[in-house]
Structures are given as structure tokens and as C-alpha cells.
Design a protein around this nucleic acid. Structure first.
Lengths: 220, 220
DNA sequence: CTCGTCTGCGACAGAAGTGTCTCAGACGAT
DNA sequence: ATCGTCTGAGACACTTCTGTCGCAGACGAG
């Protein structure tokens, strides 16, 4: 047994991230094994895809557990919800980066098993958003389900940005969090590190209208 | 000539939105023509895909022109930039809805022609974001390129939300605009229609801390 | 009516991927 | 050394999609 099932799936995912249309032969070669051996692990392409999907969903699940989503929702404490939200988003970045192709791959959106599994995780996430809305951390005038979709879309944007080299890996958590929470509009807001609010960009100081300077609540 | 080339592509796209893996035979059937006739219009699948891609990019281009992106950037006037941003996002919703599959289809991300075309449009959009940052409409502490990616990601979220029936079509412009500009965090902000700020959801009034009530600048 | 054009239909070969099978060899355990 | 297990290589049949071709029929223009 040269390569285990785990390393096999890891190699497959890594290769699928570069070419989502890779054939079984290419995936076998990427894993350094023969096509026959690949079929000894997974009876067919379908089974491999489902296995990869579940692997990704289990990591998503692990992120939710590590973030303490369940207990935060149960407690309804703003502090706990705040922490769970931050940990969740941070953790999801890595998952989206590792399993990038799965975010938008058609095979994942068709299989009933995977759909049920991901729906379950999504509902848990929506429950967190709903609780955060009740606690006054997140806006209540946007459906929690849409907020969940927003996170998904932003993770796609993160994946693309990293793939194309548009954004630096170390900036991703800040970009994701800032964009998701406060959006792109200019205006007074309290960030986690105010000194990074104005990077030394080429643009001079924006002729910003002197809006009433106030403190904004800092949910995360 | 029963069906023109335009209607043919429209039918193809509509069908591809439901099943991105549809074969040429399925696309021909969806358009109500034979497979041979489809090949008389497009020499192969590759050519069809490129044509569909360009069609989508031309609509994107049209949205940019209708929004007056170029002149707004040239003028650097906050009022013009504000209008261009709003018109751009509103227009992109329809494009993303009609050409949904193209947002994440692999064939689109591979063809050099389409890449050059979309890069050109994207650069124009980034120029608008940059100008809006200089005018104080958008945050300057987030890269304009990331803001462009954010819009892309949110459009993917819109597509998915509509496909799954999570969100109502009439709510989409508000959801997209509000989320992109102000994010998901709770806090004092001036929306375009304050009376819609608190929908009659099941959740009671959130125990929101009485943050200092202030007016926020309203970029769009 | 007749001609030219366009269309659908069926057939064809080729390409690519998939799943299965056999066989020989490597390798470790005993 | 031998046995059992696992592996890679190759061959095979099967499916699906693709691209091309010829032919017959519909249909409008003249």
C-alpha cells in the first residue's frame, strides 16, 4: 500500500482545482498510481466525487464545531455569537481554498447525498446568522439565508482572487471579514485595526465629505 | 430559416443554465432544431461556447455603457460615479441571471479570446471602483480588484439564490446593493427606504444596543 | 412549375472516457 | 524460500459525444 486513500483524495482534489474536467486517468497519474488501482479504491467516478464531496463537507463540519456554532446559537450570547462568526469565516477560508473546485462543480450540486449533507450544514449556519441577527450583531433586514449565500459567494471570490493572484493569502481573512460585515461603501466605521484603514495607496486622501464622526458597533 | 442564430444561442444558454454538461444533441433539441443544423451554425462545441461567452460579455459591455462608466470615471464627479455604480450593479444582475452558468463554467475560464475580452471589461470596472474610492464613495482600504471580485462573488450568490428559490427576484437589487455597500453587520445606516428596514419577520425586535444614532453617507 | 436553399434524418467513423479483466511482478510477512 | 497481497501494465468491450456526409423533403422566389 504505497498511497493511502486519504493522500489519494488529497492529490485528486489538488489536481481537480487546476482542471475540474480531469479524467480518471489524469487523477490516477496525479496521485502517482495506476488507473486500475484508482478503481480499486473507488468503483467509479461517481463514487470518487461523492467521497471528495463528503470529505469537504466534513471539513466544513469540523470548522463549524471548532467555531462552537451550536453552543453559540444555544446560548444566544452576543459575545459567543461574535466569536463563532469570526472563527467560522476564518475557518471556511481554508476549506474553500483547499476544496475550491467543489464550490461550483456541477457534480456536487446534483448528487442527492451531498445535497442533504450540505443542506444540513447550511441550515446550521443559517441558524447562527439568525441568532446573530436576534442578538443585534447582524442586520435583521436581510434574510439569514441570503447572508449564508453571501458568504458562499465571497468564498468563491476568495478562491478566484487567490487563483489569479489578485490578493495576498495573508490579507484574505481581513478582506473577507471587512467586506462581509461592513461592505464596500466608505464611511465612518470602527475596524479592528484603525491604523490599517488607509494604506499608502497611490490615491491621495479621498475628498470624503465630513460625515458625522461616530463610533460604530464592532460585532466581530 | 426557422430559428435565427440569436434565438438559437438564447435557447442554448437557457438550457445550459439548467445543465451545464448538456451535449450538443441536447442543446439542438432544446432549440428545436436538428443536430446537423446546429453544426451548420457553429462548427463545433468550442465555437458555440465562445460565441455564447462573447454574447454574455457584450451584454456586460452594454451594461457598462448604459451605466456611463467611462464618462463617470473621466469626470471623477461623485454624483456621476454614484449613478454609474448603481446602474452597473443593477444591470449586472440581469446579465448574471441570464448567463448564470457562464459565471463559473470552466470553458469560459480557459479560452484565451474570452479571457482577453473579460479582462478588458473587468479593468474598466476596476477603474470605476478606483475612481469611486478616490471620490470617497467606496472604502480605500480594500483593493479595487478585490471589490471587483466581491461583485462577482455576490452575483454568483444571486444566481444560486434565484435558482434555489431562496430569494425573490424583486428583492435582488436591494439585497445586492445593501450587502455590497454596507455589509451584514448591524449598525446605524441610512438606507434608501428606511421603512423597509425591519421586515415583519418571525424574529422579534432584535435587542440591538442603542448605538449612537447618526446619519451615514449614502453613496448610491 | 421549377429551381435553389435550407432543413431534418439517418448513418458513419473517430475520439475520449469508463469500467472490467487478466497477468506478471514487487513486496513484506512468516 | 514461499506464500498471500497488492500493484502496474495492458487489453478489452462499452458508452457517449463529436464532427461529417449524403439524401430526401419542405418551402419560398422567380
Amino acid at each position: 500500500m504505497s498511497v493511502g486513500r486519504e493522500q489519494l483524495m488529497a492529490a485528486a482534489i489538488q489536481h481537480l482545482n487546476e482542471d475540474p474536467t480531469a479524467s480518471m486517468a489524469q487523477l490516477a497519474e496525479a496521485a502517482g498510481i495506476s488507473r486500475a488501482t484508482l478503481h480499486r479504491h473507488f468503483s467509479g467516478r461517481e463514487e470518487l466525487m461523492v467521497a471528495l464531496g463528503h470529505r469537504a463537507l466534513e471539513r466544513w463540519d469540523a470548522v463549524q464545531r471548532a467555531a462552537g456554532v451550536q453552543s453559540a446559537v444555544a446560548s444566544a450570547e452576543p459575545a459567543e455569537l461574535r466569536g463563532a462568526l469570526g472563527a467560522l469565516l476564518s475557518g471556511l477560508i481554508e476549506v474553500a481554498d483547499d476544496y475550491g473546485f467543489g464550490l461550483t462543480d456541477h457534480a456536487m450540486a446534483v448528487n442527492p447525498e451531498l445535497l442533504r449533507h450540505s443542506d444540513e450544514l447550511e441550515e446550521r449556519e443559517i441558524a447562527l446568522f439568525t441568532a446573530a441577527q436576534r442578538a443585534g450583531l447582524l442586520r435583521a433586514d436581510l434574510p439569514a439565508r441570503w447572508l449564508s449565500g453571501t458568504v458562499f459567494g465571497l468564498l468563491v471570490a476568495v478562491r478566484e482572487g487567490l487563483r489569479r493572484g489578485d490578493i495576498a493569502r495573508r490579507d484574505v481573512p481581513r478582506l473577507l471579514l471587512e467586506t462581509f460585515l461592513y461592505g464596500a461603501a466608505a464611511g465612518p466605521r470602527a475596524t479592528t485595526s484603525p491604523e490599517t484603514a488607509a494604506p499608502p495607496g497611490t490615491s491621495g486622501a479621498p475628498p470624503q465629505p465630513p460625515a458625522t464622526n461616530t463610533e460604530r458597533q464592532e460585532p466581530l
